[in-house]
């Protein structure tokens, strides 16, 4: 596989949608060309046999870091909303949300 084939503009566009990032004209192609050599370096990791190696996501040898279930002062609504680009009546305001609800 050639370096350019490692990443197509269409794949960049799909990733941009996932990352909620509007691209400017021509950026999909440019980013694909710029990221392909990086992915080539990543592909070179395949030289290394990791079949019996567990992923290492966290460095800290620590486990069991907990906090007691005790309330601490909150910021309060004024400070929470201070940086909001738009707020009203103590709420953050965003354009009307369509589609499925949030919630966990």
């Amino acid at each position: 596989m050639s370096v350019a084939e490692l990443l197509t503009p269409a794949q960049v566009e799909a990733a941009a949608r996932l990352a909620r990032l509007l691209l400017n004209e021509g950026e999909a192609a440019a980013f694909a060309a710029q990221l392909a050599p990086i992915l080539a370096r990543v592909q070179a990791l395949d030289e290394l046999d990791t079949s019996n190696v567990a992923p290492l996501a966290r460095l800290s040898p620590l486990a069991n870091v907990l906090r007691p279930d005790e309330a601490r002062p909150s910021l309060g609504a004024d400070l929470a909303l201070r940086e909001a680009p738009d707020a009203a009546g103590g709420f953050f305001r965003v354009p009307r949300v369509l589609g499925e609800g949030g919630g966990a």
Binding site: L7, V12, A15, A19, L21, F31, L39
Partner: peptide, 19 residues
């Protein structure tokens, strides 16, 4: 995000999203 981020951080975000 298009307006707020520069090209390199956009590349990192895209790379991170891809991987």
């Amino acid at each position: 995000r298009r307006e707020g981020f520069g090209a390199e951080i956009k590349r990192r975000i895209l790379l991170g999203t891809l991987v």
